[in-house]
Design a protein around this nucleic acid. Sequence first.
DNA 1: ATTTCGCGTCCAGTATATTGGACGTTATTG
DNA 2: CAATAACGTCCAATATACTGGACGCGAAAT
Lengths: 110, 110
Amino acid sequence: MKRKRSYARQTRQALSILGKLIRIGRMERGMTAQELADRAGISRTTLHNIEKGAPGAEIGTVFEAASLAGVRLFEYDDTALRIENARLDEKLTLLPKSVRPSRRQVDDDF
Amino acid sequence: MKRKRSYARQTRQALSILGKLIRIGRMERGMTAQELADRAGISRTTLHNIEKGAPGAEIGTVFEAASLAGVRLFEYDDTALRIENARLDEKLTLLPKSVRPSRRQVDDDF
DNA sequence: ATTTCGCGTCCAGTATATTGGACGTTATTG
DNA sequence: CAATAACGTCCAATATACTGGACGCGAAAT
């Protein structure tokens, strides 16, 4: 099956920004691409794609590189991430286990 | 080549949080997993993995799903993303084109 | 000016994510 | 309580990202 993807402008912007933040963070810390790639456990080629904002990269490696480059994800520090995670777990238990749309309420209101 | 990856706790936390935000956002908007998957152009299986915080998912699809679920990336709205993107471009031009570490300044200071 | 090395780019081979169909389970609605 | 649909999960086939080695270019240091 063809898997050709398309992305909303918002998505592409976010990808581009994250890539640039990683590149800037890396440079400001005086790390070469090879150094950061090694620490993140990926190849220099892949890091290059990530810094370019490639949508196909694995999110885990992107976040790892971001973390190593000093880019704060969600504007939280390490411990705050933990707390937020727990808070979301709680919130999830309060939500219905499955979504059963009785009457459409998404956005196709016509 | 074996490609076994390992991720820092911070990375796993961020992945977990993003997945939960997507799931919560989706449910609060009354969308089924199938609906969101269709809109994002991915399979329900993949969306399930994303909501679980799987590190191997493509970042483009994750961001797309997040966007459709109403999750703000970088806490910016659409236009603010654009501005931030441009700002980073400027910042990049001011940085040296390549990193040539004369004396180590990363973190291994001993 | 010369040297060194970081960076951008290409490529074929390999590892892995994605798919879509299926099935059983569980939650929600009437 | 019964019916229905959303969800979680498994799987083989397929598409695609990752690798690592290579090469040339240009920037940075001497």
